[in-house]
């Protein structure tokens, strides 16, 4: 099998020279983006180097306990980030989001690795870590959009919710419209990406596999499955996050509690 051509450290540093282009225009048009760009690139470099070191260790040992621990850490960070970025109360939302992610990843990982790929050892680091990472990354970003949409609409359109429950709706019926909006907002971009994949963009995973020496058809088959599993895991995570968190955000009279949003967050409304 051909492997990807390695990049020397000196060659890698030459890559950074390309940043002169954006930095020049940021500076010229006084965008105030020069410093954030430098910080972002520095952070990206350090984070990825660390990940490279971790993954090297994880792949070398390929120990199921270390692999599981890595996945658990990723899920924890994803849950924290989801709650933090959506400005929701950590006390109320952390557990529901965490549980949703765990269930979603467990189901999809088992199906993908154990059932479709038929792997005897589904905790194999080379498969488990990157695939779970991709699923979690997508669940995270789409779940933030979904939770934001759901609780924003519920707050702004509380009258519609009250109108519904005062005129015969169960709580579940009254919330249906907000769940619909959240699903549309969070999954529409994913569906759009799925529809144009291969036409106007070549996905990272597939490109990575081809660079790594895989046969393009093998890479495409993996890409198809990863697109489907991203859609499924995102849907499971979003639905469960909303449904489970709903158990904690309403008063016994089915009215949303005031402390849904974190007080320290200044929300930007469009």
């Amino acid at each position: 099998m051909n492997v990807a051509h390695d990049i020397g450290w000196l060659d890698l540093s030459l890559g950074y020279l390309l940043l002169i282009v954006p930095l020049y225009f940021f500076y010229k048009y006084k965008t105030n983006l020069t410093k954030p760009t430098l910080i972002a690139v520095a952070r990206m470099t350090v984070q990825l180097l660390f990940v490279g070191i971790y993954l090297d260790v994880i792949f070398t040992y390929n120990n199921p306990f270390i692999n599981i621990l890595w996945v658990v850490i990723m899920i924890f960070i994803a849950a924290f980030t989801t709650v933090k970025r959506s400005g929701l109360s950590r006390k109320i939302f952390l557990i529901p989001v965490l549980v949703s992610l765990i269930i979603s990843i467990l189901i999809v990982d088992f199906y993908f690795l154990g059932f479709i790929l038929g792997m005897d050892f589904i905790l194999e680091a080379r498969y488990l870590i990157p695939i779970t990472g991709m699923l979690i990354g997508n669940c995270l970003s789409n779940n933030i959009i979904a939770l934001n949409s759901f609780y924003d609409h519920l707050s702004k359109e509380q009258l519609l919710y009250q109108y519904s429950i005062a005129n015969g709706a169960t709580q579940s019926e009254a919330l249906q419209i907000f769940i619909r909006q959240a699903l549309q907002k969070s999954l529409n971009p994913l569906i759009a990406t799925t529809a144009v994949v291969g036409l106007i963009s070549l996905p990272g995973m597939m490109t990575g596999q081809i660079l790594g020496g895989s046969n393009p058809m093998v890479a495409i088959k993996y890409q198809i499955l990863i697109m489907i599993t991203i859609l499924v895991s995102t849907m499971i995570t979003v639905i469960l996050s909303i449904k489970i968190s709903n158990k904690f955000v309403f008063t016994p009279f089915d009215i949303p509690k005031k402390e849904i949003r974190r007080k320290d967050i200044k929300r930007i409304t469009k």
Binding site: E157, L159, L160, Y163, A166, N167, G168, A169, T170, E173
Partner: peptide, 28 residues
């Protein structure tokens, strides 16, 4: 109960949607 609030700023499409909205609930 049936409740008519003071404001009716709902994101519903037509007057028909407003009239039939409560009848979409199982109880009604």
């Amino acid at each position: 109960t049936a409740w008519l609030p003071q404001d009716l700023y709902f994101k519903l499409d037509s007057a028909g949607d407003l009239l039939f909205f409560p009848f979409s609930f199982a109880q009604n």
